[in-house]
């Protein structure tokens, strides 16, 4: 593994499988224990550096780090980014001076984690950068697919929605390609990047044509600002053409699953009865997120203890 996790594309197939296997080990090591804690990263410091609000991702990383006994510092830098206030570099130097072993960064600017990695000695983990990538989301999605369907290789995966602005889509396309799944991205043409033809996936504008052959459907959130950005005429038309409702869900193969990275717009890209159906993995994705992030922290920080043999420690 590299020292940093900046892009899902940086992971080799072996790296990616190692993360998924390690996440499974984490789950097994904690299964049935009353005290969900491993001593692996005791004495190590993980900084959650969030320039954007994201309670769910920050909490997920925080729980993951704490379950590995790391010290966690939440550094909320919202509003201090970009042109106002302290620069990203100064923030990096501050964290460096405090002696952080890993920095988990969420930022509204694509590539901000890459910049940070130039100024920090510890590991940088990209927890979502602008419209670029969100690699741990892709890892937890792959982990969820594997747990539900038993495999990732050979799966037909449809990723549906605002691909243009989606870091989840970019990371998933790269990781799923590495792992041998076949991805089709489905969106109105206005929400696909012009350069999408170079991506290792198929592209469709027609959700109804793609659903019957999909093992996995991943619905992307429609950001509120896009609803009024002129990318599609109305939210209602978007839902009609690209929303997943019960009727459309019925056209999926029997074992197909429905995923969503959250937070959902019920009634826009996903109908409530779909989100709450047995096909939905949305709640599992959250739980799996913790396991996968434990695995990433463990592997990047070079945990020295064999997880499977780890003893419980008092909290």
């Amino acid at each position: 593994m590299n020292r940093h996790l900046l892009s899902a594309g940086d992971l080799s197939r072996d790296d990616a499988l190692l993360v998924l296997d390690t996440a499974a080990d984490m789950d097994a090591a904690l299964a049935g224990r009353s005290i969900k804690k491993l001593p692996t990263l005791r004495g190590r410091t993980v900084v959650n550096l969030f320039f954007e609000d994201s309670t769910r991702t920050r909490t997920s990383f925080e729980v993951a780090a704490k379950r590995l006994s790391a010290d966690v510092i939440n550094f909320s830098a919202k509003g201090s980014s970009v042109s106002k206030g302290e620069s990203l570099k100064d923030t990096a130097l501050t964290l460096e001076a405090m002696g952080s072993d890993a920095v988990v960064v969420r930022h509204s600017a694509s590539g901000a984690p890459h910049r940070l990695a130039n100024w920090i000695r510890g590991s940088v983990i990209n927890a979502g950068d602008g419209t670029h990538e969100h690699p741990t989301q892709a890892l937890l999605d792959a982990y969820t697919m594997r747990r539900r369907t038993g495999r990732v290789e050979g799966l037909q995966v449809a990723i549906v929605g605002d691909v243009l602005h989606s870091r989840v889509a970019r990371s998933n396309v790269l990781l799923l390609y590495t792992l041998g799944a076949e991805v089709t991205i489905v969106a109105p043409p206005t929400l696909l990047p012009v350069g999408v033809t170079a991506w290792p996936c198929a592209v469709s504008y027609d959700l109804d044509a793609v659903l019957p052959k999909s093992d996995v459907v991943m619905m992307l959130r429609v950001q509120h600002e896009r609803m009024h950005g002129g990318f599609f005429p109305t939210t209602r038309e978007y839902s009609r053409r690209y929303g997943l409702d019960a009727e459309r869900m019925a056209t999926l193969p029997d074992d197909a699953i429905v995923m969503h990275p959250g937070p959902m717009n019920r009634g826009v890209e996903i109908a409530a009865e779909v989100a709450d159906s047995v096909r939905s993995t949305i709640v599992e994705q959250v739980a799996n997120g913790v396991s996968v992030r434990m695995a990433v922290l463990y592997l990047l920080l070079g945990g020295l203890i064999d997880v499977s043999g780890a003893d419980e420690v008092a909290a």
């Binding site: 694509s110 419209t131 970019r170 990047p193 012009v194």
Partner: peptide, 18 residues
């Protein structure tokens, strides 16, 4: 816009300058 709109802007998630 941040960079040329094309394959690289699509990959890097930077707004394209067509």
């Amino acid at each position: 816009a941040q960079m040329n709109e094309g394959e690289w802007s699509a990959t890097l998630g930077l707004a394209g300058w067509p």
